[in-house]
Design a binder for these strands. Structure first.
Lengths: 194, 194
DNA sequence: AAAAATGTGTCAACCTTGCTGACCAAACAG
DNA sequence: CTGTTTGGTCAGCAAGGTTGACACATTTTT
């Protein structure tokens, strides 16, 4: 994913949508008010984006942290604990607090690595997949509504801006996530579930 | 509200891809992948978006909750405690824990309302404005980078999608925030700082 | 073979920021 | 006067982060 060469200082390109303001689009573009609006949008948007899953999770005695584990393990079956830590950006102890119950309750499976037997390769059990899918469905409908209302051009713009909001590390991790399922060796040897 | 049975003994009763046609399946897969990407983007993007202020706040012994108060009070000088509670979507007690120290440390000013003297109209002190500005600058640069890289069309799209991700309540609140500052009566009568 | 580094697990303590329930006081509205 | 609204506060609980220290198996290096 190379950097897209879109014009930021070229005055020729106007947003396709008629904003209420007509004057000096260019000047307005970087005005303080626009950036404060971005803060608001991210706060409200992210909060409501996570509200659906949160409610469901609460009924199961889980939280957002569990969802994140289910999500990223589902996205990368066979991921190691270390890789997951890198993606989540939390400490080993924090992860343990959510991962251990997930393994004990048969949502996540741990298998010892084949090439390196110190590793614990994580994957979702059928039960875990079912829950992840339920959680996903909630967000899927929510996001689809937003996508439909906004239109495809807006969606592409949304993605570009969100990528820009990510740091270099996160971008690298996202690329790996988008990659075509790498080592493929989830169901390995010894199972280590409690 | 779908109350979910915990016992998911049956592995994913319905295959998520209901369409029997190959092409349809592919389309559905792409759609799902797109939506999962949205999840990733929001997770990474929001995390890195808040990382800058978080670091600064930590040095002052504050957290994200303090920032939110500073942000919304700065956005709406003269806001009442009740309105702020509505925007943040937290309980009075949770707000008190961050608001009280902010008032005691002279970041936020409380003035009794003119029309209703039970109300405490909140506004930023110069000290509070200075801190809010520092926090804002960090996010401003971060967002500006993303906006510049993405371009104006993408930014407009981003805004549309983020609005779509908000619930009806949040949209109404955002509209009020974007409005031209209505009551305008911040520096009222009695000061109530500790 | 011995030593070092790596991957993972775990105990213990602490912080922030949500939550609930209960109760109080001031001010407004009838 | 009575009742409601707005706000403050005390006390306790939980989730989910943090750090530090240590244990253990395994792999790599010397």
């Amino acid at each position: 994913m190379p950097a897209m060469p879109d014009q930021t200082d070229k005055p020729g390109a106007e947003p396709q949508v008629g904003a209420p303001v007509g004057a000096g689009r260019n000047l307005l573009f970087l005005r303080e008010e626009e950036l404060r609006l971005a803060q608001d949008l991210l706060f409200f948007g992210y909060r409501d984006f996570t509200a659906g899953p949160d409610k469901l999770l609460a009924e199961l005695g889980m939280g957002r942290a569990h969802h994140r584990v289910l999500h990223f393990v589902g996205r990368r079956p066979g991921i190691t604990v270390g890789e997951l830590l890198g993606i989540l950006g939390i400490t080993k102890q924090s992860l343990a607090r959510v991962l251990t119950p997930l393994v004990e309750q048969d949502y996540v499976l741990q298998a010892t690595g084949r090439s390196d037997r110190r590793q614990r390769l994580l994957s979702l059990t059928p039960k875990g997949e079912a829950l992840e899918r339920q959680l996903f469905e909630r967000q899927r409908e929510w996001v689809m509504r937003a996508y439909r209302e906004a239109g495809p051009v807006a969606v592409e713009g949304f993605r570009r801006v969100m990528r820009g909001l990510m740091g270099a590390e996160a971008r690298a991790q996202l690329e790996r996530l988008e990659a075509p399922a790498p080592p493929r060796a989830a169901a390995a040897s010894l199972v280590r579930a409690g």
